[in-house]
Design a protein around this nucleic acid. Structure first.
Lengths: 156, 156
DNA sequence: CATGAAAATGCCCCATT
DNA sequence: AATGGGGCATTTTCATG
């Protein structure tokens, strides 16, 4: 089976390459080559093709925030005044390092963010001091992630 | 300055190593070594220390879901019947590949998920066919990410 | 913790098919 | 698209400071 989109086609070998690298970005190309039974040079060519297609958007070491003391994840829905320019609010949110995701969303909230904090006191400080002080923010609704059960990418 | 937690201490060199690899997991160790001015072997030792501490939880290639046609991200709050065992619901959610995050949360919802879908029709199918059919799910509230403005890790 | 050296391994380009 | 070869870079280990 082929998955195709625009001018990009991904076959089973591409999938195996991607799956290996999605699990561990430092998997040696030659190891993948041995696994799928083609030469390293071929894997290399396919990788260049996949990168050029934009399918591979990067590779990252992932840090466990808990080790740094960030044990609490929370989601915050933000209501903005109608007059407020959303991009300006995002600009201010970007300055808060604890904000790790930020979305414009449909629904009641104008903006929806994900944050990491050390504890409830830290969370309260982020809400009251950092976020509520952004001009245009009228109200927020917060809920805490008690436990994350799934964290993955779309399967290839 | 030192960031410390339990038995782990991270100095400025560790931070430079982590920052480089968080940006690009395939950054050559020797390149980092040249940048910070110590030997490759020393970087290697530090990396092993950081891995052992659990701070580094892995490395991943990141896939751009849009290239595969997954152009829509949505968040769904799920109400579960009181009698329902949450772990069973999570088990069912795990079978849906479009579910890329799943949290137990405080607040009105029992479970909060993030999904990727191809279009609104696909979203509706996920809601009506896949999620609503999970026993114990009484109601859902959905909002769509119109645009993601921030996506990052906690800064080191 | 850091180092240099050395061995092993892998990367990446190329000509060819 | 895939292959093997080969030059060069990187990784990894080790004994030592």
């Amino acid at each position: 089976m082929k998955v195709s989109n625009q001018n990009i086609e991904i076959d089973g070998i591409d999938k195996e390459i991607l799956r290996a690298l999605m699990q561990d970005a430092r998997t040696p190309i030659l190891e993948i080559a041995r696994g799928v039974g083609i030469s390293g040079a071929a894997i290399h060519q396919r990788l260049r093709k996949l990168e050029k297609s934009g399918l591979i958007s990067g590779s990252k070491f992932t840090i466990n925030p808990k080790i740094l003391g960030y044990t609490t994840m929370a989601f915050i829905g933000i209501y903005l005044d109608k007059a407020m320019s959303n991009p300006e609010a995002v600009k201010q949110l970007r300055k808060i390092p604890e904000v790790i995701e930020c979305h414009y969303t449909t629904g009641n909230w104008s903006i929806f963010i994900k944050i990491l904090c050390r504890d409830n006191e830290h969370l309260m400080q982020l809400l009251n001091k950092d976020i509520q002080s952004i001009s245009g923010v009228s109200r927020t609704e917060t809920f805490i992630s008690l436990q994350q059960q799934i964290d993955r990418q779309i399967p290839i």
